[in-house]
Design a protein around this nucleic acid. Sequence first.
DNA 1: CTGAAAGCGCTTACAG
DNA 2: CTGAAAGCGCTTACAG
Lengths: 353, 353
Amino acid sequence: MPVTQKALATHLGLTVGTVSRALNDYPDISAETRARVRAAADRLGYRANQNARRLSIGTPETVCYLMPRQLGVHVPPFVAELLAGLSDAVAERNWDLLVVQSEAGAGDEETLVKLIRSNRIGGVVLSRPLKTDPRIRLLTEMGCPFVVHGRTASSDAYAWYDVDGQEAFVTAVNHLVHLGHRRIAMICAPLQNAFAQQRLDGYRRGLRLNALQVPEGYLQVAEFSDAGGASATRILMDLPRPPTGIVCASDEMALGALAAIRDRGLEPGRDVSVIGYDGVHFGVHANPPLTTMAQPQARAGRRVGGKLVSQVGGAAPRTEQELQRAHLVRRKTDGPPPKSVAMTDVSIREETT
Amino acid sequence: MPVTQKALATHLGLTVGTVSRALNDYPDISAETRARVRAAADRLGYRANQNARRLSIGTPETVCYLMPRQLGVHVPPFVAELLAGLSDAVAERNWDLLVVQSEAGAGDEETLVKLIRSNRIGGVVLSRPLKTDPRIRLLTEMGCPFVVHGRTASSDAYAWYDVDGQEAFVTAVNHLVHLGHRRIAMICAPLQNAFAQQRLDGYRRGLRLNALQVPEGYLQVAEFSDAGGASATRILMDLPRPPTGIVCASDEMALGALAAIRDRGLEPGRDVSVIGYDGVHFGVHANPPLTTMAQPQARAGRRVGGKLVSQVGGAAPRTEQELQRAHLVRRKTDGPPPKSVAMTDVSIREETT
DNA sequence: CTGAAAGCGCTTACAG
DNA sequence: CTGAAAGCGCTTACAG
């Protein structure tokens, strides 16, 4: 039997109302009473029944994280870290963090409506939005506070935390160009994902800034996994003029690319350069160690959680937007193009235009 | 304004009691009334306020997952998959899944007491128990249903799901012995962790079964990370008689071992064999691809979640115990010991006893 | 078969 | 400064 306010009250010869106000620091309670109540509560291990409390105050004080899946077979690697930060940020304000498996856009809307209507959640965190994401519209319409981990094109109206994927791919392309590459391909994730489109935009922009174009077949959209990266790479290598550099929408895809390149008897970083995206810890153990655009993993979850809480506290969504930058981590899969190829590339701009 | 039972009731000319019973399929409600109520509820998008419902029925209908951390710097890789399965299993019964960051045994007890007392959780899932884990004692004393992902020595009294780490390391050692190894070392995780002790027991047992002993310095307890694996490996390689085979308590440690071996100009799988544990997807991309004892990741979360729910439903904890087996996945880091070494090893049993 | 009422454990105007 | 009371939205004996 958990101890209730009623138990405290009778124990102290007070009434539940007084106990409640004492516990909640109402200013009209005498210092002495407050102290007595506190002491008794501590001694008896009183904890307010949150179901009762939340029913009474009318807010669920809990945040829902829609855990993404299904893009690759498994849960994306950032999820665990994000959850850790989220749970901390939310717990600081004594809120709870509910985790729900996302159906990747399919059943999510129904799930959210149910959770909101049943007063189970007062805020939502979304990862990896689609380019036009029905969940964002839904949450906006329902007036449910939310923050998007990632962002869509219509990003001005809501709170989000994102890493600038477009800039990152401009940087990656620039880096390859400076190394001497002219034939640069991209292996991208399915384009219904907002992040995929952004990274693709960066790739295109990077080429354009360097007066290069996207040769036929150089943009490969593949399954978002190492297997997808591998098969896309095989296609690229079979091209009449295969690329000398490949930028990949994720480290996982890049790992697949490395495998496919080695399978051809070529050496990543010498015969073909590969740049990944994410900066997963594991990249350092790849064969060879993977050059990548690393996101600042540090505490994305805390940031996202903080944004949600302050929004619930009244902050305007558009003040809760944060764009981080990825940075190039050079390891061993980038280098100048092989000389033989570089020779023939002087004329590539003409040929491909 | 969410629609409530009262709204439904006045709308239908009924009373909230009747509406509630109709919605909850009480047998004493006429089929017609039930149908009318259902229809209205669907049409108006009625969802029971869960705070009210749970307050009334007296159970929080939510499960807490204590997310482990701090062993390595980051959240362990299995967490995301486990959460996915857990959330599914729990959602099937219309329960919620709360995620709380564990302080790795430190503040956990206080956290749990608070959560239980405040009626926020009706069950707990624990990962990676310590050898003697105060949380287990606490939950038992408080009468809070829980299931342990992993297990301790006193595993007979509670529900758990685990993979047989001891057997796995017997298998790993046997495998190396069959390949011709006699000098087999282990890199283990800190031994306050139950899983570390189990894996160590397996290593010892495997050696004993093959009439081998643990030579001086062959058991390295290291930080549970790739860095820990690497530094332990360096120590092993500096031994007067370095091992020809190393079993590691995790894939991550094994990756560190591979790096350290390559740094010495040696080739893992040829000069030194390495076997990891976990079967993380990433092992296939290691340099070279990592041989490992793979756990059946498939749906551990669902199993664990199912156990918790059936326990809440009245099942005895000891009927909810499940031991899975790991299996050897041979890739490229295992092979016979180098011939030069094998020659001198015929006498090793005498020397080391 | 349905209504009326009490109760779950809180919070919060409203008196005094 | 504290008490008494209403209310949050459900569930569930108890009548009838």
